[in-house]
Write a protein that binds this DNA or RNA. Structure first.
Length: 288
RNA sequence: GGCUGGAUAGCUCAGUCGGUAGAGCAGAGGACUGAAAAUCCUCGUGUCGGGGGUUCGAUUCCCUCUCCAGCCA
């Protein structure tokens, strides 16, 4: 989409610093694959939380929130403007609305639950927390399992701990960047080819290990298959491109329907300057 | 040239003992409270390769043609 470059322009105008809100750019070791802002951009403006967690570690929204809040306070304390940039809707919503007070994920419990079928998980959950069964998507294993994890860890019903998104919106302004679908598709293609030129495959080959969450990055598993020889370079490009386009669509759906931020279609502008001006206009919208 | 398989949704393929057909993937839309670049939900009319025959009725049986594989010459 072109978030990183635009964010740096904005930060320079607003005397700001950037706080990453991207579940995968957070990892170090996957700089190329996750398209982290390059050295030039990072020299111009201070970036927080990007490439800051070893990709061997398990990371999630629960870990993200306090880190991001700390970064934001720190920026404010120095009289600067925090600019949160990223494509992970859940992380941004956690920041603006907070999330329920539930304990950190217990890896052992999670692993134990992996062994059960969805039906078995549902039955357990029905016994412990019938209300949850009413509210969550019971066809979605992740949701059912998470609710059960909370019940088992806390000894309480997950539905009790789950509060409405509280802190109905901490004051902030925001914009959602979009582009024409075709243009976006083309840009994604170019970006993927650039990853190869920059050495994604070498980056991935040199990893000694990778954590359970980081390995979900688009293109990672297929890259491993390519390095094994079971997938051609072209196939890697094709699959990664497809997955990225699908992801971009899901992001749009999320931001359109889960936030009140105005949409800004970048396709209308031919250069960064104009995009910046338009962004600044949009950002004068009332505080959310 | 002969034989044997194929030819069905954008792609890979099921299927119809003859009553005009369905999965996965792709595509479109949507959901989303600690795995979120994840996970999940909804949406399937297509000359069933062309032509002819049998039949009340053929994508399904028969003949023929075309194309693609493989085998034999």
């Amino acid at each position: 989409m072109g978030k990183s470059a635009l964010a740096v322009e904005l930060a320079e105008v607003l005397n700001g610093e950037i706080v990453g809100a991207d579940a995968f750019q957070i990892y170090s070791g996957l700089e190329i694959l996750t398209a982290q802002p390059d050295a030039t951009l990072r020299q111009r403006v201070v970036h927080h939380l990007i490439g800051s967690v070893p990709c061997q570690e398990v990371f999630n929204a629960g870990r993200y929130l306090p880190l991001a809040e700390a970064a934001i306070s720190d920026i404010r304390a120095r009289g600067k403007v925090p600019i949160v940039v990223g494509g992970t809707g859940l992380y941004i919503k956690a920041l603006t609305h907070g999330i329920s007070e539930t304990p950190q994920v217990d890896v052992e419990i999670r692993e134990k639950l992996e062994a059960f079928s969805l039906e078995e998980l549902l039955n357990q959950l029905k016994g412990l927390d019938p209300d949850s069964v009413e509210t969550i998507d019971t066809k979605n294993r992740r949701r059912v399992q998470r609710a059960l994890e909370i019940c088992l860890q806390t000894g309480e019903a997950a539905s009790k701990l789950r509060e409405e998104w509280k802190r109905p919106s901490r004051p902030c302004r925001g914009i959602v960047l979009t582009r024409e679908r075709e243009e976006l598709t083309e840009r994604i293609h170019v970006n993927i080819l650039q990853m190869l030129e920059r050495g994604v495959m070498e980056e991935i080959r040199s990893l000694k290990s990778i954590g359970a969450t980081a390995q979900e990055a688009i293109g990672y598993r297929d890259a491993v298959l390519h390095l094994n020889g079971s997938l051609t370079r072209e196939q890697w490009v094709e699959q990664t491109h497809r997955a990225s386009c699908q992801y971009a669509k899901r992001q749009l759906t999320w931001f359109k329907n889960q936030t009140k931020f105005p949409l800004l279609k970048l396709s209308a502008f031919s250069n960064l300057r104009d995009s910046l001006t338009a962004s600044l206009d949009s950002l004068t919208a009332p505080l959310e």
